[in-house]
Computed example of a mutant assay.
Amino acid sequence: MSLNISYDQSLKHYNSFGFDYSAEYFCILNDQAELFELMDFVERNRCQLTMIGAGSNLVLKGDVKGLVVVNNLKGRKLIVGESPADFTFELAAGEVWHDAVEYSVRQGLYGIENLALIPGTAGAAPVQNIGAYGVEIKDALLEVEVFDIRTRVFSWVSALDCDFSYRESRFKHEWKDSHIVTKIRLKLSTVVNPKLSYFSDSAFDSLDPSALEIFEKVSTIRREKLPDPKRLGNAGSFFKNPIVTDRVYQDIKKSYPNLVAYPYGVSWKLAAGWLIDQAGWKGKCVDGVGVYDKQALVLVNYDNKVADNLLALQDSIVTDVQQKFDVVLEREPIALG
């Protein structure tokens, strides 16, 4: 086994915005055993290791020093649980997330159907604690297999030890430079258990739609609202939905009765797309980048090779929303470079 490591590799096709920056060193990881070779290379060259997946939750804003590795580990299997209704779904980190969700619902399993058509890989899902339509990956996650680059040991980490919160996890902070996700395990079930709080009352014909019906509805909604990154550069939702206190929510609600928000414990989660739309940005195009006309939460890149104009647009939107609502928006995609 020998890794194919290239030098000064363009990352244009490895980030969904299509920004054309380079990695000092680059390779694609296809086998877990290759991780030991990667560690040897990193130590020999005294360089930083950066692991990426599909690049769909990434703002590449400059050349990347050190070794950039695309996690392309493949493999998935269903394991029957103690009850005939319960299953563990094991996924290697490089599996395409949407394909895995589709596979699960076609087996009649509930648990991740609301997370259809989220771009990216299985390994990135717990890092970002991906979520949509009232469900987060932490709700279905059992454990994560990680490779500790300091000790070169594989181990399983319980979901309870991942410090999940809204679009946050231990992998984004404490473990960012020390742990590589290699597999995940999800708990799924044949028991009818739809999560429908984020859908309209007329979204489904039945009060208990199947996992496949929910999957198809979510896929349809997302295709109507979100641009295909293969055709128009984007990273999906660019801003997190801000979490605010009840007092802040009530203050905004007085001036804007049509405010879109959802209960979040004792707080409120405001719809960032609604805030951006109200600030007048929806559909605007500036210097080759813009705000998608069907969903203000999505920033798009039309023809820029570098990220400067996109980051300037980001800053303008954040400033305007803060001035209008006294709420600070936070970028969701991870910056690199």
Rank of each mutant, 00 (worst) to 15 (best):
I252F: 13
T121Q: 04
V291T: 07
K74E: 14
K253A: 03
D315Y: 09
G111N: 07
C162V: 14
G236L: 01
S189A: 04
I130L: 00
V70Q: 07
F41T: 03
Q322V: 03
S219L: 15
A33N: 04
F199D: 04
M39W: 10
D20C: 04
I221L: 12
W175C: 02
E90S: 06
I130R: 00
V157M: 15
E113A: 05
P119M: 09
D320C: 10
I52C: 06
F19G: 01
D201W: 13
K294Y: 09
R223W: 09
D99W: 10
R44I: 03
P263V: 06
D205P: 00
V328H: 13
L78S: 01
F154D: 01
A85L: 11
N301V: 06
D163R: 15
L35F: 12
Y292N: 05
G233A: 09
K65C: 01
N30H: 15
N193S: 11
A85Q: 08
Y21P: 01
M51V: 15
D320T: 10
V244C: 05
T190K: 12
D201N: 14
V321H: 02
N45T: 06
D315Q: 15
L160W: 13
F154L: 10
S178H: 07
T245A: 01
I334K: 10
K284Q: 13
Y292R: 08
G66T: 11
E213C: 01
F19R: 11
V289R: 01
K12Y: 02
V181I: 15
V70I: 15
E90V: 09
N4R: 11
V191C: 06
F26K: 07
L212N: 09
K269Y: 12
G337A: 10
V298C: 03
K305W: 02
